[in-house]
Design a protein around this nucleic acid. Sequence first.
DNA 1: CGAATACTGTGCCATAAGGCTAAGTATCGC
DNA 2: GCGATACTTAGCCTTATGGCACAGTATTCG
Lengths: 111, 111
Amino acid sequence: MAQYSEALDGVFTALADPTRREVVRRLGRGPMSVGDLAREFPMTLPSFMKHVRTLEANGLIRTAKAGRVRTCALRRDRLALVDDWLAEQRRVWEARTDRLEQFVTDPEEQS
Amino acid sequence: MAQYSEALDGVFTALADPTRREVVRRLGRGPMSVGDLAREFPMTLPSFMKHVRTLEANGLIRTAKAGRVRTCALRRDRLALVDDWLAEQRRVWEARTDRLEQFVTDPEEQS
DNA sequence: CGAATACTGTGCCATAAGGCTAAGTATCGC
DNA sequence: GCGATACTTAGCCTTATGGCACAGTATTCG
């Protein structure tokens, strides 16, 4: 029941950017170097590195430098936080005593 | 396989804020008016309304005004987008030919 | 050793996010 | 109708975000 979780803030923030989501996707296939990853995105390396750092800071990836190459790997366990949150949501709304949602958005209402 | 999805951007952005996540949680129990919702948060009404608008703009809630009261209701179907994205992630990493993750973060690496 | 490679660090910039106050509008209840 | 209620609009402020260029450091290769 951890409501105001900073961890969730971080994970959702990290996943709110399309570049970062794509990095997560690619790393799902296996570890990759920063350079190899960056090559697929239309931005400069320093800009791309910010995304890498954001992902790492929020625990979604792990990185390590060997020689001059930094390799990134996905941390699948962190994505589980999202799963958990969704599961709790479902728990909440399944708990309500079958209130039959009479509420309907009024079609007249525009603004 | 919609990668760069604006819908996902919106949903994740909306959920990245603890106030908005809590609103989603509370609405999980059933519809509520803006005023009733706002009363539980330590901020002014105008500030709170911004969150309501963000949630609505990103499709996570539906709102309608009756008289002087605006009622909010959760749109559970939008949360399914997150579920779907997670499911696709799992599909991606399960597809890799059991690459045994030899990659280990080098303990020497600090910066 | 010297050039190329692969980041890394710094600083700048524009826009967006999240909060506030103050004032305005629209209902509702007496 | 008049005051209270429930938003709503407008404008301001500060910080965060995401991108850039340019210069620097550390490895690797020939």
